[in-house]
Design a binder for these strands. Structure first.
Lengths: 107, 107
DNA sequence: AACTTGCGCAACTCAAAAGTTGCATATATA
DNA sequence: TATATATGCAACTTTTGAGTTGCGCAAGTT
């Protein structure tokens, strides 16, 4: 099944993996040591992250280093963009409200 | 169960709901009409979104208008921030690489 | 060549989540 | 007051996903 990035980051373990390898690439075994679960469980998370291209493998002998794909993470940023204006508006409205209240009380 | 926003936005229907009500507040019935599913199904999605405070109810007679809570959506933005520098770096590196190649070929 | 190590794939179990049907409650309207 | 409408809650079914065990393969090591 083709995964999408929203589903991929919904899992706390996968978010932790992303945070880890954003610092430096790691092998599946190295990741498994960080979490209290079997290597195979981590391997499944890796599969999900790989399918939606949030991480990229780099073979080195019999080891595979998984790198963080920042470019893909930007898709979130683009999705969020549709709401960004929205929350800026709400903040402006709050600001205006506070200003109004202040003006009234100091009058 | 306490929901988290990552899990909340992992569902396509819930993302669609957010996109809809970011434009203007809607009642559960109005939402259900937009999607090919029962009102109760939509109601469950609303519950999830409400529990993690991505939407806020506003009673109006017997109707309930659900508003988008942009402030909560910002939590994503904050989570993304840890990667933002990361992808900017990768872009700079790509830019440098391209510049290097261009310099070599035009030599 | 035999052994060890790192990894992926498949089958299985179990828990959670999506969606349905049915019902109770509150507000509006006749 | 009787009826229709808007909604939430509970029980149930079905699907999905996380995690485990077991296996096979490829790359190093002895």
């Amino acid at each position: 099944m083709k995964q999408d990035i929203f589903q991929a980051i919904s899992d706390p373990t996968r978010r932790a993996i992303l945070t880890l390898i954003a610092i430096r690439a790691l092998t599946p075994n190295a990741m498994a040591e960080k979490f209290d679960m079997t290597r195979q469980a981590v391997s499944k998370h890796i599969k999900v992250l790989h399918e939606c291209e949030l991480i990229k493998p780099q073979q080195s002998g019999r080891e595979i280093y998984y790198h963080f794909n920042a470019k893909k993470m930007q898709e979130f940023d683009h999705w969020l963009a549709q709401f960004r204006q929205n929350w800026e508006t709400q903040f402006n409205q709050l600001e205006q409200l506070l200003t109004t209240i202040k003006t009234q009380t100091t009058k």
